[in-house]
Design a protein around this nucleic acid. Structure first.
Length: 338
DNA sequence: AAGTATTGCAACCGCGCAGTC
DNA sequence: GGACTGCGCGGTTGCAATACT
């Protein structure tokens, strides 16, 4: 018991809820509802703050809550949604009936930990780890950084409708934002927005907010499409941080059949193109299978902070032109965590 | 069997937003 | 417009259960 900052109540219990407290809360809410949470504790005879009551009800006591392990379908959905909307747990939870944001958040965080904990099979220079959401962890400062984006921000420029279409396996609406331009052949647009998700997990990945990749679990079952993209990245002169890359209208997509190229680097603008041919892709898949690249993606980054760094996919590093001097994005797909 | 490390998850904290006065 | 209040959200913590040595 003690003072509680949120409600100024002196006699507020904290910590785990007892069965008696649960019973009181359930009885009160099922008969009166919960119009005003701040009134609930007093009316229900609980020495808790309203916030605590709300949390207990929403995350544990409400009758429509669903418990137990996440199903593979739910897991896939979480991964896909997280790729699309980032750490917006409440939003993700809204797509999973009966699941709470807290539960999903816990699931995700423990899953991330598992991925990080994988042993030193990553070819990390100077102990840098890549998180599945493309963040980089440097143990020294424990900061997570991203080349371009706030991890809270969506990693894709999908509209809500587009996202839901993908999730629901429906045909998506026509592209309507600046992500896909009319320069894309319609066939390619279709392949972008109609990922083959009928079997196996679908993963969407992105590194610089304007890369994306859809991949079915079985790589051979779908002609691998890797987006070739031209992107630009600016530099914020006031604090020397990279700004989120700008969407370039010249974005194109094609089946992977060429090498990696990057070019046209001047001052603080980087333009790069990324594609993979089948051999490279298979190489990567092999590495992933061998757990040489346990995080399941290739990353190369030649920014000032991670000079010449490659995580996974050494062959791909060799493919990079040696005179590349600035940040180059990363992409790629993701092995099934299931 | 005992001690230690890890995991899973319930609960708390603080912040931001919206509504109200 | 500013202060206040309540709510919702995401980040984080704490601890019991479980796994490991």
């Amino acid at each position: 018991m003690g003072h509680h900052s949120c409600c100024n109540q002196q006699k507020v219990k904290r910590g785990l809820w007892s069965p008696e407290e649960d019973e009181k809360l359930i009885r009160y809410i099922t008969t009166h509802g919960y119009g005003c949470w701040s009134e609930v504790p007093e009316k229900a005879g609980l020495q808790r703050c309203g916030k605590s009551c709300r949390l207990r009800w929403i995350n544990y006591l409400r009758p429509d809550i669903r418990r137990g392990r996440f199903t593979p379908e739910e897991e896939k959905l979480i991964i896909s949604l997280h790729g699309a909307v980032g750490n917006r747990w409440a939003h993700i939870a809204s797509h999973l009936p009966g699941r709470t944001d807290n539960e999903i958040k816990n699931y995700w965080n423990s899953w991330i930990k598992k991925k990080i904990r994988k042993p030193s099979s990553i070819t990390t220079p100077s102990s840098t780890l890549l998180l599945p959401n493309n963040n980089i962890i440097t143990p020294n400062n424990n900061n997570t950084t991203n080349n371009s984006s706030d991890p809270q921000q969506p990693q894709f420029n999908f509209t809500t409708n587009q996202l839901e279409n993908i999730i629901n396996h429906h045909h998506p609406p026509p592209p309507q934002d600046n992500f896909i331009t009319t320069k894309l052949p319609s066939q390619i647009q279709d392949s972008i927005f109609t990922p083959p998700i009928s079997t196996g997990p679908m993963f969407m990945f992105d590194t610089n907010n304007n890369h994306q990749l859809f991949q079915e679990n079985t790589i051979s079952s779908w002609p691998m499409m890797v987006q070739t993209t031209t992107f630009t990245m600016g530099l914020d002169s006031t604090n020397n941080n990279y700004l989120p890359p700008l969407i370039d209208n010249n974005m194109v997509a094609q089946h992977a059949d060429t090498d990696i190229q990057c070019s046209n680097i001047n001052d603080h603008v980087v333009e790069g193109q990324i594609t993979l041919d089948d051999h490279q892709l298979n190489q990567w898949v092999q590495e992933t299978n061998d757990e040489q690249c346990p995080n399941g993606f290739l990353f190369w980054d030649q920014s000032d902070h991670h000079q010449g760094q490659t995580i996974g996919g050494e062959e791909l590093q060799e493919s990079l032109p040696s005179n590349t001097t600035s940040n180059m994005g990363a992409l790629l797909s993701y092995p099934s965590p299931l």
